[in-house]
Design a protein around this nucleic acid. Sequence first.
DNA 1: GACATATAGTCCAGACCATACCATACTGCT
DNA 2: AGCAGTATGGTATGGTCTGGACTATATGTC
Lengths: 198, 198
Amino acid sequence: MSIDTTAAPPTRLTSTSYLVLGLIEREGPSTPYELKRHVAATIGHFWSFPHALLYKEPARLVELGLLTEEREAEGRRRRLFTITVRGRAAIRAWLAKPAHEPTELRDAGLLQLFFADLGSTDDCRALAVAQLAIHRAALARYEDDRRGDRGLNGSDAAARTVEHWRGVTLPMGLLYERAAVEFWERVFWEGVADDARR
Amino acid sequence: MSIDTTAAPPTRLTSTSYLVLGLIEREGPSTPYELKRHVAATIGHFWSFPHALLYKEPARLVELGLLTEEREAEGRRRRLFTITVRGRAAIRAWLAKPAHEPTELRDAGLLQLFFADLGSTDDCRALAVAQLAIHRAALARYEDDRRGDRGLNGSDAAARTVEHWRGVTLPMGLLYERAAVEFWERVFWEGVADDARR
DNA sequence: GACATATAGTCCAGACCATACCATACTGCT
DNA sequence: AGCAGTATGGTATGGTCTGGACTATATGTC
């Protein structure tokens, strides 16, 4: 046992921690607002991190010595966070230890489908239509993203992060959305046919 | 607007609420423990609902008048929850209004991949191997489930729920896991080739 | 009776979350 | 200059969630 390598730090690092550390490591010193924008342009497409968290988390990481903070004295009083040597070490340690948790797939539509037998056939049909609209839209957006129709607008910022997202992580989103479209089309055509009988 | 049909209930109903209501509606009066087992056998495969929640949520629903509670006077002092007329109405209203939220895909492995450029090539390769193991295992388990190798063991309980899961919702799990295997195989063979360049 | 395992439920601190709110900066119009 | 409107940037609040660790009852079995 004794899994913790750091002799009981105040709190464990979460996915959010590594997200923040990773973005700052890749993009350099950042404000929470910048983190928020980078997240929205990339991983936020399918894993929502509430922005309040992206303001709170860096403060925690400062306490843990993984980031340092400077703050504008006037005006917006922006906070600028910079990664420390220990912060870099933390990321690399994390990357060297592959995650073993299974994927969490939280989908309200799927939950409704799970209970579709309690409603009407029409409800189920309407659900399939709504879900198809959602997933087709997501698919189209991802395909645009991949072609780079976006990510250029706005600013030069986040170039590395957006590029890396586009090439490496976004393809999973595409695969997922294609699967979802296929799935809901089947639901639409076959209904909840309870073809599980037999 | 005025979306709420019930004149400002203390709190809104969440996915968990509908999960609890739906299970009780389908399976009849249930204890939290039974809910927990039904969840574990079905939707819990990819959407984790911490068990503490399945003990707390019914109490809230009682306050809202959607369930009633009886409690054993002695021994385990189990709580048995029964759905009310208003509870049934709440479910049907929910089913009649298709969800419009996008899927949340929370995957620690994918997050690591998103930052794979900050680590070594070996780390990335190891990550792909680990993820392949996870997703292949999940795929195999789902395929067993579909064939009905499980769900019979243990008890007769949850027959309807498990059947419905198997026929209707599980196929999405299968599609997802197949996509994931395909994805991670590509990562394994191509590495994070940064083939995003041009 | 002693021990192990499965069943059933409770508790809690800390983290999370949505949401509303506050403040500063820029932009264009008159 | 004055003002409105919008985008930028950040904070506050309180309920909710979370993951353990913990307690206790029942069943078996040596």
